[in-house]
């Protein structure tokens, strides 16, 4: 059976959801071999087994935490040469894509990023990508080397399956360092899920009227167990930190549910959320383009609609 390499993302022993998605996806193509860099593999192993990982290559060195991108890419390159996998899967976030890029150069193989689906094809895996702000659907494939695909988080639902997740220790045979990470600063660790991999995202726009008005977005997000997003108007005005911007030049999200509150839905915002499964919009302008995308929309004042919604959610809990 073909072997598929999956680069794990984890915070210490906590396996990120996107990794479980990648393992689930890998099983469409063969045996999922997880590549785990850094510490925590023993504790994380059970979770990987639960989702059907066949084995786990563990490189427990600190070099992966100390240097930017290169050690992980070098390890994958080494494993591609040793194990001849049919496919390499990484998470399609900024860092995952950089690892994919370096790996592509190291092994002279094609790389596809931002895939929202991946299916077996006659000439290898075929990736579905949603480009130009979601306006065009492209199917593409790798025609040279070992296919490397960066999958957008939430592209597939994680499905449990039996697996051994047998641990096999590996180590780098070549020196791979580069730029050194000297410190990690966490801005504000909230209990909210990470924006790019959250199942529900509640985003606020210009309609919130200011940093104070944005509080209602956070309240709704917390009531829904959601991540908070913001439109560019909001981050440009400094009402909410820039790293939460959803859109063409910010983050691209693809959650099960996207709630656009006080967001008009300019093309550059839609570029970051158009592939969301279900979209809800609240805006006082009935002509706002966001309503063209919405599965359910309310034309009204968000400061009336959202508090009532919060009350209703409270009642149902």
């Amino acid at each position: 059976m073909a072997e598929i390499l999956v680069l794990a993302e984890h915070v210490d022993a906590d396996v990120k959801k996107v990794t479980l998605e990648l393992i689930t996806l890998a099983r469409r193509f063969g045996e999922a071999s997880v590549v785990w860099t850094g510490a925590g593999a023993e504790e994380g192993q059970a979770r990987l087994a639960e989702y059907g990982a066949t084995r786990v290559y563990v490189a427990a060195d600190s070099v992966y935490d100390d240097y930017v991108t290169n050690p992980a890419a070098e390890l994958l390159a080494q494993l591609v040469k040793e194990k001849s996998p049919a496919l390499v899967l990484v998470a399609g976030n900024a860092q995952g894509k950089e690892v994919a890029g370096r790996l592509a150069v190291k092994i002279d193989s094609g790389v596809l990023t931002d895939a929202v689906d991946l299916q077996p094809g006659a000439d290898g895996p075929v990736a579905e990508q949603s480009v130009f702000g979601g306006a065009t659907i492209v199917h593409s494939r790798v025609r040279r080397g070992t296919p490397i695909v960066a999958m957008r988080p939430n592209a597939v639902a994680p499905e449990p399956a039996a697996g051994d997740a047998a641990i096999e220790a590996v180590s780098l045979s070549a020196d791979a360092t580069g730029a050194r990470i000297t410190n990690r600063v966490v801005a504000e660790r909230s209990d909210r899920p990470e924006l790019s991999e959250a199942s529900i995202v509640v985003s606020g726009g210009r309609g919130t009227g200011g940093a104070e008005g944005f509080g209602v977005i956070e309240q709704l997000a917390d009531a829904m167990g959601a991540a908070v997003g913001a439109s560019r108007a909001v981050t440009d005005a400094g009402w909410y930190p820039h790293q939460f911007q959803v859109g063409q030049t910010g983050k691209t999200v693809s959650p099960q549910l996207y709630m656009a509150i006080g967001i008009s839905g300019a093309i550059q915002h839609r570029a970051g959320m158009q592939t969301s499964k279900t979209i809800i919009a609240v805006n006082k302008d009935p002509e706002a383009p966001i309503f063209e995308l919405a599965d359910f929309g309310v034309v009204g004042d968000l400061f009336k609609v959202v508090p009532q919604l919060l009350e209703e959610i409270g009642k149902r809990k």
């Binding site: 593409s140 919009a281 359910f296 309310v298 009336k304 009532q308 919604l309 209703e312 149902r316």
Partner: peptide, 30 residues
């Protein structure tokens, strides 16, 4: 090293329901 197999315009999303808030907008979203 990569190639496009095919490409299509995304079909417009199925029009959803849009209601005007008559004092019950939040309840309707719920």
């Amino acid at each position: 090293a990569t190639e496009v197999v095919d490409h299509t315009q995304r079909p417009p999303r199925q029009a959803g329901t849009v209601v005007k808030d008559e004092g019950d907008g939040g309840a309707k979203v719920a």
